[in-house]
Write a protein that binds this DNA or RNA. Structure first.
Lengths: 166, 166
DNA sequence: AAAATATTGTTGACGAGGACACAAAAAATT
DNA sequence: AATTTTTTGTGTCCTCGTCAACAATATTTT
């Protein structure tokens, strides 16, 4: 395996493990909610006037999936929908008090994860950070251009399954 | 957002885009097979005496899921199972000729992806490579230790959904 | 202003994969 | 050697997310 492959494999493993650990913790603290629900709540909590389409774009999921997800969150009383007087099509979401409470618990877990991995990041110098950031940004721009070339809407359903939550 | 968060976000985006592009291409060239089937074939092609358990560990999936997947691959005539004379429990897999053909097509796609991203990697110096590799390895070891602490089998079903294919 | 097109959100059918329970075989313990 | 424990693979049920088709509203074109 060459260095390019090695690096991508290592980072993939990294994210798989992080996801595994995060969902492990979440299944203990937030038994009745799955990761998708939690991340959806998180996004709605942070972004005013979230709607199905914005959520779909953010999570690389279909509008269909988000539509069902938000419906469930409404039924569970975690979010509520509202509309604007001048638009009868778009439906926005905001957190209920109960949703905000869940969000707090999740934020706490997030902080714990940061604390857990603090030791690793402390040993990374500014310069090393910048090298990695620069690489990731360049690679991202390159891929954006490649996706652009195809001229396809990324939420129109060319998906594999659950994507990595942002 | 601090640098730690920024770096993780950028790499997550990176992988989401790579997965999206890869599956986009695969849906065109390998219409009748989904990514899981292809990656399963890839693994079996590269690893002698693959079985359900090894595949599950490699792909962070449950044995149950792999069992169904391999069954389907057998039905499609892409792999075949065999056993060893001294073991009546373990069931191994190997590619059929048809499976090998599919694998070839996939390898070609993989090379095309490498070619696509070549320009990005060419601009990375040896030193920069090593910095990123070192970071990923340290972080991986850290997470391995954290997972170890929990004392849970990673294939025993504490999953989120589809994990990133290795 | 009317017609064509695009956007937004929803539904039902479907498929992939996890949860859980189980049987059979192998390995470890006694 | 007999019993217990672990490993391996499978089957059933359930959830989640895509796909495809659709209605309703908004936007653009003519």
């Amino acid at each position: 395996m060459n260095k390019e492959e090695q690096i991508m494999k290592d980072f993939r493993d990294l994210f798989n493990k992080i996801m595994w650990l995060d969902s492990f913790k979440m299944k203990i603290s937030l038994k009745n909610y799955n990761p998708s629900e939690i991340h959806c709540i998180e996004y709605i909590g942070q972004n005013a006037d979230s709607n199905v389409t914005k959520l779909a774009e953010y999570f690389y999921m279909t509008r269909s999936a988000i539509s069902k997800l938000t419906k469930k969150l409404i039924e569970k009383g975690l979010i509520e929908s509202y509309q604007k007087p001048d638009n009868k099509k778009e439906i926005y979401f905001r957190l209920t008090e109960q949703g905000k409470a869940i969000n707090k618990v999740h934020e706490k877990l997030h902080e714990e994860s940061q604390e857990r991995d603090k030791a690793v990041f402390e040993k990374v110098s500014e310069e090393q950070f910048d090298i990695m950031l620069s690489f990731a940004e360049k690679y991202n721009r390159h891929l954006d251009a490649e996706i652009e070339k195809l001229g396809v809407d990324i939420t129109s359903g060319f998906m594999v399954g659950i994507w990595m939550q942002k």
